[in-house]
């Protein structure tokens, strides 16, 4: 069944969109979109290192992402610069280091475009295993740390005072983001992954009234966009990753239409009539 590259593409995209849904919600709630972007940028360095040392790409990206998160913590304590400045500093300098290293190690042949924008049609069975098993683990861990992570998102001190451990949950959450970015490189690429995390979650925000609802709808929007995106890219022969992202944007715009408002006001009028 997974012999067909189209089937593999669907399987990989759907698997990834499942997990980016709830994870993306936390990124939006915690205002971490720029942080996700930074980790994605540094993934290039991970990939180059992996090629140079003949090492597994996903694990190399994970290690580099963790080092990045640690450097951020260190810089936050040592400087008085705002977070977005620190993230910008790290994102672009590490991206630059990755490119410099790529130039020095001239024996490495990397499909740079594929790395930046993904190449979902070239996903192999090993990649699929990483997406589904890795994604499954990420989802399970996210469910396990949901309460302390969510309580800490609403109010860190309250969560701490009442006996939860939000700091540990935050650290694990950072690892989860890094893992998802690592497994997504081949599917949507490092420049577009933050979009797949944020846009479905943002679209879902316009439709939901509870946190769990938002996480689930976000997954559904992501999966639907992946399916539509792959189909569209086949029909029009467009690059698949960018097509998926364009579809998510389309969904986001649709959710801005006052559908929900219309429904609610209708309900209110009915209630009013009953009185």
């Amino acid at each position: 069944m997974f012999d067909d590259f189209i089937v593999r593409a669907f399987a990989a995209g759907i698997g990834l969109a499942f997990i980016t849904g709830p994870l993306g919600c936390f990124i939006v709630w915690r205002r971490l979109s720029y942080f996700g972007d930074t980790i994605a940028h540094t993934a290039l360095l991970g990939v180059v290192t992996a090629y140079a040392l003949d090492f597994n790409i996903i694990i190399a990206v994970l290690v580099v992402s963790c080092l990045l998160a640690l450097s951020l913590l260190f810089l936050q304590r040592r400087t008085n610069l705002p977070d977005d400045a620190l993230l910008g500093l790290l994102a672009h300098s590490v991206l630059a280091i990755g490119l410099v290293l790529l130039g020095i190690l001239s024996f490495i042949r990397i499909d740079l475009m594929g790395l930046l924008f993904g190449d979902i049609l070239s996903v192999n069975v090993t990649d699929l295993l990483f997406v589904w098993i890795g994604g499954g683990i990420v989802l399970i861990v996210l469910i396990l740390i949901w309460r302390p992570l969510f309580a800490g998102t609403v109010n860190l001190e309250l969560a701490k005072a009442e006996g939860l451990n939000p700091d540990l949950a935050n650290a694990i959450f950072t690892l989860l983001i890094a893992s998802v970015i690592a497994i997504s490189i081949k599917i949507v690429g490092i420049l577009l992954i933050t979009g797949l995390l944020i846009i479905p979650a943002s679209a879902s925000r316009n439709l939901s009234s509870t946190p769990i609802q938002m996480a689930i709808i976000s997954s559904i929007i992501g999966v639907a966009s992946v399916v539509l995106g792959i189909l569209t890219s086949m029909i029009w022969n467009t690059p698949t990753g960018p097509t998926i992202l364009t579809i998510t944007l389309g969904v986001f715009i649709l959710t801005l239409l006052p559908l929900k408002k219309l429904l609610i006001s209708k309900k209110k009028i009915e209630l009013f009539d009953k009185r």
Partner: peptide, 27 residues
Amino acid sequence: MRISYVPQKISIDWSLPLRAIDFVNLV
């Protein structure tokens, strides 16, 4: 012991859909 804390200030970000019941179930 069970501890409850009512902080001086809590601001809920707009991006977070949260009903009163969800807030009571927070911890």
